[in-house]
Amino acid sequence: MSQELIISGSPHIHTRDSVDRRMWNVVIALLPALAVALWVFGLSALWITLLAVGACMATEWIIERYCFRRPCTLTNGSAIITGLLLAFNLPNILPWWMVIIGAVVAIGIGKMSFGGLGCNIWNPALVGRVFLLLSFPAAMTTWDPAVSSGLMQAVHTGASGVDAETGATLLATLKNSGHAIDMSRVDWLTLGIGDMNGSLGEVGSLAILIGLVWMLITRVITWHIPVAVLGSAALLSWATGANPGLELLAGGLMLGAVFMATDYVTSPMTHWGQIIYGVLIGVLTIIIRRWGAYPEGVSFAILLGNSVTPLINKYCRPRRFGMRKIRKEVAA
């Protein structure tokens, strides 16, 4: 027996789960969507992704090292996730320096200015994306004309007065044409696989769903947030006369619901809170898409959802054991 015995409070055993395991499983879950991005956009997607991930990791390392003077936290994978998600939210022809600005804002302002992992209020990747969208609106909504599949051709020719050569996304086309496109021309399989224009990671809806299944199997997340976001968005778009399938598959809603709304730090703690939060995001997304100025509203909806998370946490608390009985007895 060793001379010194370790003394600590109970419990003395610990689950094999860890922050690292969870974060790396999210990275794995992001890989199918990355593969689709490479297939649709080619090497430019890889370039943007590497740039964003590298810039995020470098920013985090510099701030940890020279501002916080803390041990390096890069191995937990959270900076890589932020970099991947930021890249997934950018067009493949964005200038390289804009990508770096986005990454520095995402990590520097979105995450480290609050104190690093676990302290931020908003999803860092979305802070970076919205910063870029508001600063460089033109660059952020200019899509690669080289990417225009049969699906886009069909829809674009269907929508009168829209030029297929600008390479607009499906949702932008929808918005510009006043939701008057010929639905019979939409090829759902192509839409699901993601052979169309858009941000890097948002196009491959089926790939994102594979990632969702992986995260559910490895118990990284529960079903509550994705189902609440997608369900409420589908319901509201159906109620307002739009095609729910198109709303779910054609834009960033799938990516947002599965990977960004589910960010632990910025989403509520209890399952009921998560459902309220998810419904809020789904409803806001459709409202922005239908009546707002932007064709796409997921980023804003999630950031607004993040903002009310502390409030949701305050009111959606778990039911305490033995409390209902007391109330009953007091009433009786």
């Binding site: 370790i6 860890s18 676990g118 509520p268 703690m269 209890t270 778990p318 305490r320 054991f321």
Partner: peptide, 22 residues
Amino acid sequence: MPDIQPCIRCGACYSACPMGLE
């Protein structure tokens, strides 16, 4: 002993608590 990391507010402890505490 494994390192102590920052709380990521994942809610695992909320789900585990048999007394419904936070």
